[in-house]
């Protein structure tokens, strides 16, 4: 396979990945979507609270979920537990401003794949996507 061929295959894989962004802030959803599209991902869904995130996950079976923690209706940690219980293969990346010890411990215990501290940088998003799409374990 030529070098170009390898790139093409990587691009096709990117396009096939289903990603869910869950954040109650329309600004964060917009910025995160923009960052992921720039990285070449196209199948991106959005949820604005934990409950909607669980519902969309059960319907779409995303490979990767970006999950805020502090949200109305259902918190990100509660949604994480429910998604992992139903879809244990899903990689849920917690993306929150509240990276406290207790949130980190709870997220890890509930099966989170990774934790990104807000503000989100394009670098941090690219790194976690590279790791997650390469099939790396948590």
């Amino acid at each position: 396979m030529t070098y170009t061929g390898v790139n093409e295959r990587a691009d096709t894989m990117k396009k096939e990945l289903t990603i869910l962004i869950c954040d109650d802030s329309v600004l964060i959803r917009k910025k995160l979507r923009g960052a992921l599209e720039e990285l070449g991902y196209a199948d991106i869904h959005e949820a604005h609270d934990g409950e909607q995130a669980v519902a969309i996950s059960l319907e779409r079976h995303p490979q990767i979920v970006f999950m805020d923690i502090v949200m109305p209706v259902k918190t990100g940690i509660e949604a994480l537990r429910e998604i992992i219980a139903a879809l244990p293969e899903t990689k849920v990346v917690m993306a929150s401003s509240v990276g406290t010890q207790s949130n980190l411990k709870e997220a890890i215990k509930a099966g989170a794949y990774d934790f990104i501290q807000k503000p989100l940088s394009q670098d941090a998003i690219a790194r976690v996507m590279e790791k997650a799409s390469a099939g790396g374990g948590a």
């Binding site: 929150s96 401003s97 509240v98 990276g99 406290t100 501290q117 807000k118 503000p119």
Partner: peptide, 9 residues
Amino acid sequence: NLHNGLFLV
């Protein structure tokens, strides 16, 4: 939210 989150951290 970000500011308060960083304060909590």
